[in-house]
Every structure is written in C-alpha cells, then in structure tokens.
Design a protein around this nucleic acid. Sequence first.
RNA 1: GGGCCUGUAGCUUAGUCAGGUAGAGCACCGGGCUUUUAACCCGGUGGCCGGGGGUUCGAAUCCCCCCGGGCCCUCCA
Length: 524
Amino acid sequence: MHWADFAAQKLSEREGPQVVVSGITPSGEFHIGHLREILSAEMIHRACLDFGLESRYVFIVDSMDPLRRVYDFLSPSYESYIGVPLANIPAPGEDGEPDPEGGSYAEFFLRPFLGALKQIGVEPEVIMNHETYQNGEFAEMIDLAITNRDEIHGIIESVSGRDLPEDWFPYSPLGSNGSLDGVKVTGYDRPFVHWIDGQGIEGKSDIRLAEGKLPWRIDWAARWAIHSVTCEPAGKDHGAAGGSYDTGIPICELLGGNPPEKMVYEWIQLKGMGPMSSSAGVTIGPMEALSIVPPEILRYVIARSKMNRHIEFDTGAMMFLTADEYERLVSNPPNEEEGMSKRKRISVKTRRGAMRFSQVSRDSDPSDSVGGVSFRHLSMLAQIKSDDDGVWSSLRRSGHLPGEPSTSLRSRLEKMRSWIGGGHFPEGSRIIIQSEVGEEAESQIDEDSRSFLELLAQRLESCDWDEDSIGETVRSSASDSGLGNRQAYVSLYLVILGRDYGPRISSLMAEMDRESLIGVISSI
RNA sequence: GGGCCUGUAGCUUAGUCAGGUAGAGCACCGGGCUUUUAACCCGGUGGCCGGGGGUUCGAAUCCCCCCGGGCCCUCCA
C-alpha cells in the first residue's frame, strides 16, 4: 500500500472532515526541498478523497515569522528589519535593496512558488498566518496560552529537555519599531499584553490583532486547534524526539484542540552536496526544476519514495533513470495476479499508488502523461535535430510515434531542450562532435578499420546527403572492406565522438556538413 | 549527554507496521530484430538483507547490544 493511502486509511478513523496542511516560512527563495513538504501533504489529501473522505488541503504561510538575519541576497539595509514579521517587510529588489514597489517580503517569495505549484497540479487553500492574527482568530489561543503559562512552560521543559529562561512568556509582542527582538513583557490585562522594548519604550499589544505572535512551538499547536488540522507531515527537523511536534501535541490538547498524529518526512538532498541550503547556494528552485523536468516526473520523484527515506535529487544521470522508470511504470503497470506472495501484492499496490499520485490532475489517465520515448533517446534526438519536425519524423521512423506528437511529448521535448541548453545536463550524455581525432581514439583504431574509413571517406564525396543514403554508404563500405558492422561503427564513433558508442550515427552524420565530416574521417 | 530516523545485489531500491522459501529497475553479459551499435524485444550473472546475540517450527521482518550514515534537543522542509 502506498504511504499516502495508508495515511488516508488511518485518518478515516478520525471524526469530521480532513484538513491536511503544509506550512512553510517564506524567508527566501523556495527550493526543491519545499516541494516534499507540499507534495507529501497534497498526496495524502488526494488519497483521502480517493478513500471517500471529505478533505481540504491548506497551505499555511508563516508570514508572521520574523526575519532572522540578513541573508546573502539581501542588502545590509535589511539589518533594521531583523525581528520584524515577513508580512511587514518590503520585498527586496534586483539589487537586494528594499523595493517599495515590490509588495511584502512574504508575498514576493510566495508568488512564484504558487505558480510552480499550479504547474504540478497543486492548488491549495492559502492562509497567510499574519492574517489569522490580524482577524483575531488567535486571540482565544493567546489568552489560553498566557493563562496556562506554567503548564506550557512545563511541557516544553520536560518534553524537549531544555531550560526556558526565567522571564519566558508564551507570547512575543512587537516593539515600537515593529520587531519582536528585545521586547520584554511587563504584564497582561486581557486583551492587552504590556511590554517594554529595547529602546526602553513602553507599549501594549492587542492579542486580537497582529501586534505580536506566539512562539513557534505554541503557534504551531494553536493553529492545529484553530483550523482543526487533522494531518500535517513535517520535516524531520520538527519530528525528532523532543522537537516541536512532540511539544505541539500536548500543547494543542491543552488549548482544547485535537492534534494531528505525528508524521515525519526525510529531507531531499542534492547529490553529493548535502542538504538544501539557500545560504550556501546549494539550491534548485521549483521553477528551475520545472523548466527541465516534466511535472509528473517531479511528482513521481516524491511519490516513489517512502516518507522516511532521503531523496537524492540531481538533474543529471538520476533524472534519466527516474524519468525512464516512470515511462516503464505507466506504459506497463504492474497487476495483481493469482498466487502472488503477500509482499509482491503490497509492492504492486504501492507502485500503482505512486503512479496515481504522480498525475498532475487527480482524475487523469496516467497513460496520457507518457511520451512514448525514453528520456535517453529523446535527449539524443534533441541534440542531433535542431528543429522539432526532425525529431518527430525520426520518432515515426523508429516506430515510437504513430501519428502526431501528443501535448505531453511536445512539452517533453521543450523541457529536454532547456535541460540540454542549461548547466544541469550531465556531461556524459552530451554529444560532442570532434574536430580532430584524439590520440586515445586513434590508438584504438586498427589497420582494417583504417581502410574502411578511407573507403567511406571516398564514397561520402558523392553519396546523397540524407540519413538513409549515408547509412547505406556506411554499411556497404563496411562490408566491401571486409569489416564487421560492429567494428565499423565503433571506429566511426571513435572518430566522430571520441568514444566507442553513441546514438544512431547516420542521423548524426546527416546533420553535419559534408566537407567537415569527410575532413575528420580522412584525418585518421 | 539525551533521543529520532536509516543501513537489503556495483547503483537506486520493494518487502519491515500485521514473521512463512529475498523482488524490481539501472548497469553488466549473451541472444534476437536479415537498415537503426544510448531504439526495441528476449534471456542470464549477481544478495550469509551492516555485525553479533536472543525469541520462534520458522526472522530482512519482533527484542537486546554494537558499528556506519543522517538529523534533532536554538531557527531551518
């Protein structure tokens, strides 16, 4: 059984409509790792619907979270915004300076992310957390947290094992400069929390407005209660024992809520580079990924892995494997059969689930999403054929394409071209035509092959310059010089590509200019 | 220091929750397609399931110990 189906089955034991939630702080550019947060929850939401449960999928944006520090992409002038909620800070412009025209910092980073989500078929209900503060929905929770300060204090200390400071208070008011930093609470008189900030200025915050916020561990628990959250998969950072999930559950209960069950997912790592980190420049944005990877494949990357396993993401060789695996799965889905062992049965169900959850729209037929060609083959054609029609006719000839290319195939080619054109394409898959024969290649070419190449160069002078004629010329030259086809091709690959293997060579040769091709071949 | 997750063929992994003869893909090797050598089809090699102990008729699966990797206990998906 797929993990999303399993989660839905567990959730069916709970009363009421399901509210499946993701939460992310828009502190900077979103990266591919955030997609796991989103898709883990969204797939469970879909599984609930498939299970016949009533379900909503909600994306809570932590827009009330403060700016923690001045990130590398920000100008030093953001120093004055440290501690200020992201919803109240101007977005950075091109130069990293605050841009008065750019809207809020939170919105600025959120907008393109939502666009990317739409492309992968995710359209959540978006809740900006600062609005939930602003419209008073947090007020009751804040009051409860303050009046139960000692209990909450005890929960956090005993569950997380850390010591809270003497003056700990379960509510952080904004000071006179709009920052949470350095503000001390001096008293509570519902609905006002009185404080004195770092400059010694005194004031009060109305808990019915966004004039302060709950600290993270309480904020999270409170929103579970406010929005009746039934499921929220969290990153392993929150999931560790004593982490915010563990404190959130009893705090949520104390606040009168029915918390979701703990559910934790592992992180996505970039191959060989450790975890995602925007500050270290180790990042691939969802938009960037979508420009080179078809959306259903991106979903499949998440759907095929169990939640508690790392995902090694890379846009190189791994992408070919994953994409081709998806093609095979969809074009030949596994079926349950008589006499299958229990584990095989489970495996079939899991793989069918992964296929179902990879679809961009929930009720679409998976078979509409395949290209009918492996990524590997398409990458070769895209490199050899500069125009799309050349690719289609080649695919028709090879029997991959019965008629006109489907929308999904067209989009595959488009993304393939941008993949090849950018820096993420694996060098080993790149086709590089040699301008002269390298020493290493030369040493691998024996006498028989040389005479074949000589003959071939001669015949290429006069043959028609199209794929079929060239192919025929290669074969006839091989047989006339008494060389096996295999050896003939190997020597050709060595001369043209500098390697002993490659794509269909006649297509490649036809794309080359006659003079230069003959020049390279004769140079041996 | 305390705790969570993880370790299955060269690589990516299924199967672990509900114990019952180790499954798959890639790679590799071989064969076929009498014009496709990174296409396509068929077949094959390859695993004391991290190590050790225990429970059981039976353990990758349950329990204990150890080793390696990741993470949390301040913010991080």
